[in-house]
């Protein structure tokens, strides 16, 4: 973990209240998709945790939604502005775990299920999965058509993408699990990588038998020092920031 200065290359609106920001700097601490960074903002005491959406050698892409004062401040930042960022935090998704399951079970129908600003980390994951020879389906859930982002980006990776919206203004009306369920109510998928609001994670948990779930928590430090973000799991207490944010399905306690 390091506290590094990144320079904003681009900060643009991509959906209602949602912005994509490109940050230039040293990304070598990032090892896995699903990790996050913790951003210091002028005038705010705590940093803001935001998932790494995608990264290259010298560039991090994040996508954030304006939900409060901190993200509002971020949306006003301009190209050339600098941000102090703790990288890279959390465990991230494990492709090795999926491979172990594949070895055991043969073929597995794999899906990436994202809800709202839970979508971003799944994009970097999709790229890494493709590099590893895994071709997942993608299901993205939003409130309405105006909230939808990254449909095309996932399609450009050559993946099948389905959208669900709560108000039915795009794709299937309903939630992501409505797209992931067969007529007989069974799951269309054997393995899921997911990130989104907790009620969505719970619905996905109830449907798909195996997978990796990324959680959110209010954080003070983001690197395991304060116990602010703890949760109970079947394998004992875990810190979402350090032992998570990704938990394996079998360890989750609701």
């Amino acid at each position: 973990m390091r506290d590094l200065i990144f320079k904003i290359k681009e900060n643009r609106k991509i959906a209602k209240d949602v912005y994509e920001m490109l940050l230039l700097g040293d990304t070598s601490d990032i090892t896995r998709p699903g990790q996050f960074i913790n951003i210091k903002l002028d005038g705010f005491y705590l940093r803001r945790p935001i998932s790494v959406c995608d990264w290259s050698e010298d560039e991090i892409k994040i996508i954030y939604k304006v939900v409060g004062e901190g993200t509002e401040y971020m949306s006003g930042l301009k190209e050339g502005d600098e941000l102090q960022v703790l990288t890279a935090l959390g465990n991230g998704y494990s492709i090795d775990e999926l491979k172990l399951s594949l070895e055991k079970n043969g073929h597995m129908r794999t899906v990436l299920a994202g809800g709202g600003v839970g979508v971003p980390p799944l994009y970097g994951l999709a790229k890494k999965l493709l590099e590893a020879g895994v071709r997942p389906d993608v299901v993205l859930g939003f409130n309405g058509a105006e909230d939808v982002f990254y449909k095309k980006e996932f399609e450009d990776l050559g993946l099948k993408v389905e959208i669900s919206t709560m108000d039915g203004s795009m794709g299937k009306k309903g939630v992501v699990t409505d797209v992931m369920r067969a007529e007989d109510n069974s799951s269309l998928y054997d393995y899921v990588f997911t990130c989104g609001p907790e009620p969505m994670l719970k619905a996905v948990y109830d449907l798909v038998p195996e997978g990796q779930f990324s959680f959110e928590a209010r954080m003070a430090c983001g690197f395991g020092a304060c116990m602010g973000c703890s949760c109970k799991t079947k394998y004992g207490n875990k810190r979402i920031c350090k032992d998570g944010p990704v938990l394996m399905r079998e360890e989750i306690i609701w």
Partner: peptide, 12 residues
Amino acid sequence: FGNPQPRIAECP
């Protein structure tokens, strides 16, 4: 285990 979540609130 401590208290339920959320446990952290930002202040000025």
